[in-house]
Amino acid sequence: MQQDQFERQQQASEAQWMRDREEARLSERRACYVATNAAYRRYRIQLMNYLWDVHQGNVTDMARDELEAARHGHHAAFAEAQLTASTPVLAALDAVAKELAGAYQRIKRLEEGNPMANGSFEDIEKDLQQLWERWKGLRTRMRVCLGVEDAGAAPQTEP
């Protein structure tokens, strides 16, 4: 009888430990997604601002510093996501990170006066605008991962 009660208490303790552990993981993932969302948005906005400065011939040291700060913030958020995000979210983040890196390279080449084949102001601006639309799908994946939205709300195409 005492053995049965002890085993039930042991099972209840294990179940509570598992619930606490899952809740902690979810909280950690949520914090990661919030930071990642903010960093990716900031980096995209700074890329757009910098692109405009390049187009206007008005690049300043402050604009360069702001872009680099946003870029480093993005890298830090992505590094955290690589250890925390679910596999579907991480795959989508990786795709967006590659697009942001490509936009950065194209903008820098445009600034140097050596634009890439698809590196005009208009091409880069269009791609950065489209990236925002794709980001909405990625954000939905994060919400599904956190249980905020049903899995049926997740986009079927890659962000």
Rank of each mutant, 00 (worst) to 15 (best):
M1V: 03
M1P: 09
Q3H: 05
Q3G: 08
D4S: 07
E14A: 09
A15H: 10
A15R: 07
Q16M: 05
W17A: 15
W17T: 08
D20E: 13
E22H: 08
E22S: 10
E23T: 08
E23A: 14
E28M: 12
R29C: 10
R30P: 10
Y33H: 05
A35V: 05
A35K: 12
N37Y: 05
A38P: 03
I45A: 15
I45P: 01
Q46D: 11
Q46N: 13
N49F: 11
Y50Q: 08
L51A: 09
W52Y: 08
D53S: 11
D53G: 01
V54A: 07
Q56D: 14
G57I: 10
M62H: 09
M62W: 04
R64P: 04
E66A: 11
L67P: 08
A69C: 02
A69L: 09
A70R: 03
H72R: 08
H74N: 12
H75I: 14
H75R: 15
A77G: 12
A79I: 06
A79G: 15
Q82N: 14
L83V: 04
A85F: 02
S86Y: 00
S86H: 02
T87D: 15
V89K: 01
L90C: 05
A91Y: 00
A92H: 04
A92C: 03
D94L: 01
A97D: 12
K98W: 01
K98L: 06
K98N: 03
E99I: 01
E99L: 02
A101W: 02
G102A: 08
A103W: 00
Q105K: 10
I107W: 00
L110S: 07
L110V: 08
E112A: 15
N114G: 03
N114I: 05
N114M: 11
P115K: 05
M116L: 14
M116Q: 15
A117I: 01
G119N: 12
F121I: 12
F121S: 15
E125R: 13
E125K: 13
D127V: 07
L128K: 02
L128M: 07
Q129W: 02
L131W: 09
L131N: 08
W132Y: 12
E133V: 06
K136Y: 10
K136P: 00
L138Q: 05
L138V: 11
R139S: 13
R139V: 11
T140N: 06
T140A: 15
R141H: 05
C145T: 08
L146A: 06
V148R: 01
E149V: 06
D150Y: 07
A151Q: 10
G152F: 05
A154K: 01
P155M: 06
T157V: 13
